[in-house]
Design a protein around this nucleic acid. Structure first.
Lengths: 110, 110
DNA sequence: AGGCTATATACCCGCAACGGCATGTATGGT
DNA sequence: ACCATACATGCCGTTGCGGGTATATAGCCT
């Protein structure tokens, strides 16, 4: 609880992003993920724990198996953070020009 | 060079995100950023170095001053990674349902 | 019950990141 | 020339993360 902060740090890990990409196709078992990642099983579990605590995945227990499934909600915050930047690329050349245009003399703060 | 990898790790740092947010408004001097961040000046410079190497900011030298300005291009890759996930939130309840629907028996990989 | 399977947890290690202080370097001002 | 300003870099200490191995836990199967 307390996952108000954007899960950028969770997504910073390439392995964890790969896990999410794999779960994007379909839910998977830990063993399956482990195999795909070329990682030790505990290593995989650890990443899954982080993802779980970030609310990015959910677990469904079936006997001893654990089906991990995607939970994209937290990615909303990433999307939200990205929003003001979106549209800045590709519009003209860069954001610079307009900025340099909009600050001719007022650059000292009170 | 070699910034093919998505700059998630760079964005994982809250301070660096704050810097980008500040630069979103207008270009700023290092001292100005330092003040806003409540951080030591060298600390700020180091973060700026990371952002620079990630191509997320650009520097314009004016005498001894350095104007740091935003360069949003690399955020495109973040946006691109996010793309397949976008639309998964809010559509129905979750992505789970459809997944659980689409894998009744084929769960073993070839 | 015993053993096998599937996953989680505990512990340890190595390394890289963040922060601070001290110092280097360049430019301006006087 | 000298000192101040603005920033970068170097070095250090601490901390946290990612990975591995060993071990616990839980549920099947015979």
């Amino acid at each position: 609880m307390g996952s108000v902060s954007i899960p950028f740090d969770v997504l910073a890990e390439p392995t964890r992003r790969r896990i999410l990409d794999l779960l994007l196709e379909r839910p998977r078992l830990v063993g399956e993920l482990t195999e795909h990642l070329g990682l030790s099983q505990p290593g995989t579990s650890k990443h899954l724990r982080v993802l779980r605590e970030a609310g990015l995945v959910r677990v469904r227990a079936e006997a001893q198996r654990r089906w991990y499934e995607l939970r994209p909600e937290p990615l909303r915050e990433v999307d939200a953070w990205l929003a003001p930047y979106r549209g800045l690329w590709g519009t003209s050349l860069d954001a610079l020009e307009r900025h340099l245009d909009a600050m001719p003399d007022e650059m000292e703060e009170p």
